[in-house]
């Protein structure tokens, strides 16, 4: 039998002076610890090590599933849920960069905004951001060959530039608007956008699906319309996306046009433009 699970409530004492690296502070890692032990977990603050308890007031209570609940402004806290395998992390405010980056499982819910590289190289699980995300969400870390490769990303606000750059698998939603180079170099996966996007959407995409539920973007010359009957796959896809709600709810009832590309890179991806 495994140790009983616990929920940790971590209330931020004061905004730290430097950026804090939260890598390693996961529900599973803390789960086996007591309140005091959890407070002694070392994290990186600027160039020095600091005890978790110095930054947070920590309360532990037994629960059915391991979870961390952060309270406060975590905008200086990076790498929340970095490489997390399982469990649940909730933040009632904003978080810094690399939120849920390389996530493998479990749920991360952020009530505020997230910084750059949110859900980058995420492989499983779910990140739900009630606010907006910075640049390179669901993208690849610099130099990596693949971006997000599994799981689900839900952004209820806006997304910055290069959203889902090099993404390979999984499903991503942006309820609001997206910046330039939306889904650039997409390898595969599904992305649904509720608002409008900046310049060069789908630039050099190879495969994958972009669903523009909001404003219909201008279709570049390197994408070609395919006039075939695609009601079957559209119904399957639209019904699934509709479950996210918001601007996607009515997707199954809308007729759709399909464009394929980016043929500048011999791409076979698709844009689905509901009417």
């Amino acid at each position: 039998m495994s140790a009983p699970a616990a929920v940790f409530e971590l209330r931020l004492r004061a905004l730290p002076r430097f950026r804090v690296d939260l890598a390693g502070v996961t529900p599973l890692a803390l789960g086996a610890l007591g309140e005091a032990e959890a407070g002694r977990v070392a994290i990186r603050h600027g160039n020095e090590a600091l005890a978790l308890g110095e930054l947070f007031e920590i309360r532990r209570r037994p629960a059915n599933a391991p979870a961390l609940h952060f309270e406060g402004d975590l905008s200086r806290f990076d790498r929340l849920a970095w490489e997390m395998e399982d469990g649940e992390i909730r933040v009632d405010g904003p978080v810094g960069h690399y939120a849920a980056a390389r996530l493998r499982g479990g749920l991360v819910a952020v009530a505020g905004d997230a910084g750059g590289f949110a859900a980058c190289e995420m492989a499983g699980g779910e990140l739900a951001v009630a606010g907006s995300v910075g640049d390179f969400a669901a993208a690849a870390l610099p130099g990596s060959m693949d971006g997000m490769r599994g799981g689900t990303l839900v952004v209820r606000g806006d997304a910055g530039a290069r959203f889902a750059d090099r993404m390979r698998r999984g499903t991503a939603f942006v309820f609001g608007n997206a910046g330039d180079f939306f889904a650039s170099r997409l390898v595969a996966g599904t992305i649904a956008l509720g608002g409008r996007c900046g310049a060069h959407p789908g630039w050099a995409m190879r495969r994958g699906t972009l669903v523009f539920a909001g404003e219909t973007p201008a279709v570049p010359a390197t994408f070609v319309e395919t006039g075939h009957d695609l009601r079957v796959i559209w119904t399957l896809l639209a019904r699934d996306l509709a479950r996210a709600g918001g601007p996607f709810t009515a997707l199954p009832d809308r007729r759709v046009r399909r464009f394929a590309g980016d043929i500048a890179v011999d791409g076979k991806g698709e844009w689905l433009l509901p009417e």
Binding site: A188, T190, I233, L236, K268, E270
Partner: peptide, 11 residues
């Protein structure tokens, strides 16, 4: 051919 994962199912 195109692969599409929808709701965890591959088509």
């Amino acid at each position: 051919q195109i692969s599409k994962m929808i709701g965890g199912v591959r088509y």
